[in-house]
Design a binder for these strands. Structure first.
Lengths: 339, 339
DNA sequence: TTGTATGCGTTATCAG
DNA sequence: CTGATAACGCATACAA
């Protein structure tokens, strides 16, 4: 693959490289005819400006790194679509990496991106990420970073988050309004995760507001997968602790639990009403269709991308901010008791 | 963000840049002590080599472009994981673009990648892509390209495909072995798509082999989404054309159709047995769980990545090849009649 | 209006 | 063993 350069064009036309350069960046004055001639022959010769050379001069890579926990999770691929959309328009390229829910890999990814001289990093932490010291240092060094979704609680950084508390509250309240009295919350795992704790906080406050009894057994640390949901449901059945409503940390857990309860003869939503979180593709086709909180995935991506660009282009003149986005409760049959 | 360069180190240590450079590329001889001193102070100063400068010299971007129809489809995100894995190890970066099933966007993406001076392109065509002339030209110009999944039938290029024919044949034969006599195939749309036509060819041949009647009504051009599946099922019910087995172009179509038939009181698999294709996350948790052909998504990615690297590194000395990968039929309750 | 020279950060080729 | 210098492709300040 031989690439045509401005030198080739200059030689061909017996002009200097600077003239050719000028023709492309309609800056300094250049005779209209020469310009047109150059542009024309450039096109004919199949010239494409070498972005690498430009980047070297501008001392910027126009690359932005993205670090997500796992790409199989549609949430993150959807966010990345939003990110791409904005970045592409602005001439940036996105380098996508995934940390497979491993802090070690996450750190490695970030360091690799640094070595790639990205202009900024967009990231969502793994579930096990506890130590955010390195990211703090990066911020202090002046590297633009935007966190989203799974964000470091203690760091003063730019963040885009979802109002987990509010929507967990609404979701729980919805179950209560459907007549549920004994609602169990299937929670994530680590208490350090903002998301898990915010959602369970919303659950608790809704229970309190409506003066429903709330004991330790009603919040169960489950995990995040379909199998986690299944496992917990089996345990609940074995212990004969059957609630009349379940608010799950996410759709996968809800689906897993629902499946098990169904095969054991429980009627949904009559015996147990279900609400999930972070609407998945499966929710609407479950039987019964699963009520879930939908997050504005694409908007999150768009917002994140705008923020990182803003931060890059106003390097010395920006203050960390946290943007909180809203969602929607998609009410479906799994929680509708038609009281 | 000020970046330390070898110049900074040279100045700091009162040596020349070439000495510093030598210290990093343990090539030419350099006094052990100076080398160690340089390496040490470089680390202390937080030096990171500028990959852009290196790329300029090497006249290579070490970027590889990926063009997929849509990233929401987990198939493609899974493939991309495999691709990433291999490329990252070899020091390449992946630029991911998606064409949203639009030929126009696809072409735009490819051209953008060209302008980014990618060293090669990995792509899967959109469903509407018909004209592959431009890609032919690119290949002739010597740009390494590897196609996968949705590949241009007529182009002599490197391709990684799945044995759609074979597994469609097996899937259909499985239904026949379960006692189905009147099997309908829910096909994609465009006849020009290798995948759709290969799968329906497999279906037809299996029917022929087992001497089952096969008329035009048994192959229905459906589409690719859950709603397409629903729509067709409703039509079949309305026309009272109820088969005893359905082999769908993909899981989404199977799921859509299955849902409708179920709500109309049909028993799965007793009344109608179902087989999907390209195992989705939903398949195992459907009720009944959906039999499907699983594709080795990650392996496809790995294979594709290896091929593009091979092509890049042996630019003048490679011949286009087509690699066909195998899958597996995950038999589940949706097709098991326990005869 | 155009050409010359310099520099972006690095490597490579020569001299020394 | 080390230093000076040219080159990668392009942009730009300055000179003509």
């Amino acid at each position: 693959m031989y690439h045509i350069t401005i030198k080739d064009i200059a030689r061909q036309l017996n002009v200097s490289v600077s003239t050719v350069s000028r023709a492309f960046n309609n800056k300094s004055d250049i005779k209209k005819e020469t310009k047109e001639l150059i542009l024309h022959t450039a096109k004919k010769m199949g010239y494409k400006p070498n972005p690498i050379a430009k980047k070297l001069i501008e001392r910027r890579s126009y690359n932005i790194g993205l670090v997500v926990p796992e790409f199989v999770n549609p949430f993150f691929s959807q966010v990345s679509i939003g990110v791409q959309e904005v970045l592409a328009k602005k001439g940036y390229q996105l380098l996508i990496t995934q940390s497979n829910e491993s802090y070690e890999t996450e750190l490695l990814n970030v360091k690799n991106l640094e070595n790639s001289m990205v202009d900024g990093i967009i990231m969502s932490l793994t579930r096990e990420t506890d130590n955010t010291l390195y990211y703090k240092e990066l911020i202090q060094q002046g590297l633009p970073i935007v966190f989203f979704n799974r964000v470091p609680e203690k760091l003063n950084a730019t963040k885009v988050i979802f109002n987990d508390y509010k929507w967990a509250f609404f979701a729980t309240e919805h179950l209560i309004q459907q007549g549920c009295k004994n609602i169990v919350h299937l929670k994530g795992i680590s208490a350090s995760q903002t998301i898990s704790s915010e959602r369970s906080r919303g659950y608790k406050d809704a229970m309190k507001k409506h003066k429903l009894s709330l004991n330790q057994n009603q919040i169960i640390s489950t995990g995040f997968t379909i199998n986690d949901g299944k496992r917990v449901a089996e345990l609940m059945i074995k212990n004969n602790q059957i609630p009349d409503g379940i608010f799950a940390i996410n759709d996968d857990v809800a689906i897993g639990a629902m499946t098990v309860f169904k095969t054991h003869g429980y009627k949904i939503p009559k015996d147990i009403a279900f609400v999930g979180f972070t609407e998945s593709k499966i929710a609407p086709i479950m039987e019964p269709p699963l009520t879930s909180v939908i997050q504005p995935t694409c908007e999150i991506g768009i917002e994140v991308a705008k923020l990182i660009i803003h931060q890059i282009e106003n390097e010395n003149n920006y203050t960390p901010q946290t943007i909180t986005l809203n969602g929607q409760l998609n009410i479906r049959a799994s929680s509708l008791r038609n009281i």
